[in-house]
């Protein structure tokens, strides 16, 4: 198994989460019970602009769905991938082409070539991590349901 730890760096994850505004979700489902929909819905609640990328849908979560990253008419901070691993190299190439800030691959979306393309194109790369979980770990309320955030800190932060 390949070592993914360089694509799971805590500082990179926190920087991406804190600085991003727009998230293009590639493979976002229109079915409200699918994991991708849960993540998209959550991101909207936390004030990210979610852009669906799914050629089979016209609108998801109240936003226009685009057939590909190339069709998105605005700057993308995070390309969040919910597709099969073998689709990743193509998605990574498009992400580089449109000047996205980060490539974020969900659980199981692991493809070395895709990671390399994005990295060489200057994108921050996070692999085999869930964007919702990492946001909830560092910013949100994952701890409210007894999940292990692994965070240890005595720093007082603002209102939740």
């Amino acid at each position: 198994m390949t070592d993914l730890s360089r694509y799971q760096d805590a500082a990179t994850i926190q920087r991406v989460i804190h600085t991003a505004r727009t998230v293009a979700v590639v493979g976002l489902s229109g079915n409200a019970l699918r994991a991708s929909y849960f993540v998209g819905y959550y991101l909207q609640r936390h004030h990210y602009r979610v852009i669906p990328v799914n050629p089979r849908e016209t609108q998801i979560l109240g936003e226009t769905s685009y057939p590909s990253l190339r069709d998105v008419p605005e700057k993308i901070d995070i390309v969040n991938v919910f597709r099969a691993p073998d689709a990743l190299p193509g998605i990574a190439r498009e992400a580089v082409e449109v000047g996205a800030g980060a490539l974020w691959c969900q659980f199981g979306v692991v493809n070395e070539e895709g990671n390399r393309i994005a990295e060489e194109g200057g994108l921050a790369v996070v692999v085999d991590r869930c964007l919702k979980i990492e946001h909830a770990r560092y910013v949100g309320r994952m701890n409210w349901l007894g999940f292990n955030t692994r965070r240890i800190t005595s720093v007082r932060t603002g209102l939740q």
Partner: peptide, 29 residues
């Protein structure tokens, strides 16, 4: 940067038995 990043450190058992799961209450401190 306008945020503080936390290091992904392997804290010891004795530290975690005191701190894990709790952060100072954001409302009251």
């Amino acid at each position: 940067e306008p945020f503080r990043t936390e290091e992904d450190r392997e804290f010891g058992f004795e530290t975690r038995q005191l701190h894990a799961g709790q952060r100072p209450d954001p409302n009251t401190g």
